[in-house]
Design a protein around this nucleic acid. Structure first.
Length: 140
DNA sequence: ATTCAGGCTTTTG
DNA sequence: GCAAAAGCCTGAA
C-alpha cells in the first residue's frame, strides 16, 4: 500500500494538543493522565485523536495509534476504548480495524456500532465500511 | 520474571 | 478477496 501515506512524522495538520475537554468526566480518577514532566498518558492522546475523527468518517486502530504518536499500539487503542465510560463523548464507533470491518468485542455492540455509523451517513458493503469513508488527515 | 490472550496490522500465498 | 503466519505491545495471571 503506501503511496499516499508518508512517514508518521508528517504533520497532517491535526493538532492533538488541542486537548480533549473531558471525555465523560470520570475516567480520570486513578489514571495519571498527565505526568509530572508534563507528558500525557498514551490513552489521553488516543482520546484526542478519536475525538477529532469527523462524523461520517472512520479510522483504524493502527491509524489512530500512529497519529497519537504511538505506532504499533493499535491494540492499546482497542483496549483503551473498551474501558471507556458509558457517557463518553468519544465517537468510538468510528473506529474500526484495518479491514474496515467492525471489530467484535461484543455481538450486541457490533450491531449498535453499525447503526450509529449508518446514522452518520456511512455506507456499508456487506459487513465492511465503504473505503471512501475512511478518514485520512492530510496536510496539503 | 514468564506466559497468555487481546476491539490489531501487514505480508504472503 | 480470504486464510495463515509472524510482528508488536500491553495488561493480567
Amino acid at each position: 500500500m503506501m503511496g499516499v501515506r508518508k512517514k508518521t512524522s508528517s504533520h497532517t495538520g491535526i493538532n492533538p494538543d488541542r486537548g480533549i475537554s473531558e471525555s465523560g468526566g470520570s475516567a480520570r480518577q486513578k489514571q495519571g493522565l498527565s505526568d509530572a514532566a508534563g507528558n500525557v498518558s498514551p490513552q489521553q492522546r488516543i482520546w484526542s485523536i478519536v475525538a477529532m475523527i469527523p462524523a461520517g468518517k472512520v479510522a483504524s486502530y493502527g491509524q489512530i495509534a500512529a497519529l497519537a504518536g504511538i505506532p504499533r499500539h493499535a491494540r492499546l487503542v482497542g483496549r483503551t476504548l473498551r474501558e471507556l465510560p458509558a457517557g463518553s463523548k468519544l465517537p468510538w464507533h468510528r473506529v474500526v480495524n484495518a479491514a474496515l470491518r467492525i471489530a467484535s468485542r461484543a455481538p450486541g455492540q457490533m450491531k449498535q456500532q453499525r447503526k450509529l455509523l449508518e446514522a452518520e451517513g456511512i455506507e456499508f458493503i456487506g459487513d465492511r465500511v465503504v473505503r471512501a469513508h475512511r478518514w485520512q488527515a492530510r496536510a496539503d
